[in-house]
């Protein structure tokens, strides 16, 4: 079974987010970019399926300008077999992303598609579910455990209040949550090897997908600052303040 994994290039999660002075967007000039953490978990899961003899090949796909090849190479260094870049300078919205990926799914016919549940830049949490809708596949979102059993994949999902397990007919879509696995670090020999792995470049036009805008970004602003409070000297003072000043207990 072939496994398709998607990766997104995003602002490194350790970097402080700064809004541009003209409030048009977040400032991404000269900042460190990285593989979206949820995508990294997706890559790790796919590689583990291959190591367990369940997946025969792991194909990694990313959408964006040439720079995203860096994230594809990272995924290849972690153990994916080959990469596909869908080259565009636009930042396609989730539905366009799903349409592009649906075409790749049509071409590659994977048994399983694993995506991160959300990217840590736009925080949309949409692409996996949309891809599932467009391909008519079942979806196991926010996965904390993935088990392939025969013609079915059992996905344990992190839901409000606990865990839910669903069984999905293959092929199926899985989106990763944090506890699914702990991604490995790429070793130097694997980073070197990744440079020689095949990487195809396609365009949205090659795939016959027109990128449409569904939203217009009017403004991006920093969140309201919370005014700092005071330090109390003792538990006694804390309880007194909560009772008499804040009146919350």
């Amino acid at each position: 079974m072939k496994v398709l994994v998607t990766v997104k290039r995003v602002l490194d999660y350790n970097v402080k987010v700064r809004v541009k002075a003209d409030q048009t967007d977040v400032d991404l000039t000269n900042v460190k970019m990285a593989l979206n953490p949820f995508c990294e978990i997706a890559v790790e899961e796919a590689v583990r399926l291959k190591e367990a003899g369940i997946a025969s090949e792991v194909v990694v796909v990313s959408i964006g300008p040439k720079a995203v090849q860096e994230q594809i190479r990272t995924a290849l260094a972690l153990g994916a077999d080959r990469g596909i870049q869908i080259e565009t300078d636009a930042m396609p919205e989730s539905l366009s992303v799903a349409k592009l990926l649906a075409k790749i799914v049509e071409d590659e016919k994977p048994g399983l598609v694993i995506l991160g549940k959300q990217a840590i830049d736009s925080d949309n949490n949409q692409s996996g579910q949309m891809l599932a809708a467009l391909t008519g596949m079942g979806q196991g979102t926010f996965a904390s455990e993935v088990k392939v059993e025969g013609e079915e994949v059992l996905v344990t999902r992190e839901v409000d209040g606990g865990l839910q397990t669903v069984g999905l007919k293959l092929p199926a879509i899985v989106t990763t949550d944090l506890r699914l696995n702990e991604p490995r670090y790429a070793s130097l020999p694997n980073i070197m090897k990744a440079k020689k792995k095949p990487l195809d470049v396609k365009t949205p036009a090659d795939l016959g997908v027109e990128l449409r805008a569904h939203t217009e970004l009017l403004k991006v602003e920093p969140p309201a600052e919370r005014a700092g409070g005071i330090k109390v000297a003792s538990v006694e003072e804390l309880v007194e303040k909560l009772k008499n000043e804040a009146k919350v207990i």
Binding site: V19, V26, S122, H214, E216, L218, V220, P222
Partner: peptide, 16 residues
């Protein structure tokens, strides 16, 4: 809506 883990707030207009 919040983006970047709430470190920025985006104002978006739907075109749909």
């Amino acid at each position: 809506r919040p983006i970047y883990a709430g470190n920025a707030i985006a104002t978006v207009k739907s075109l749909d």
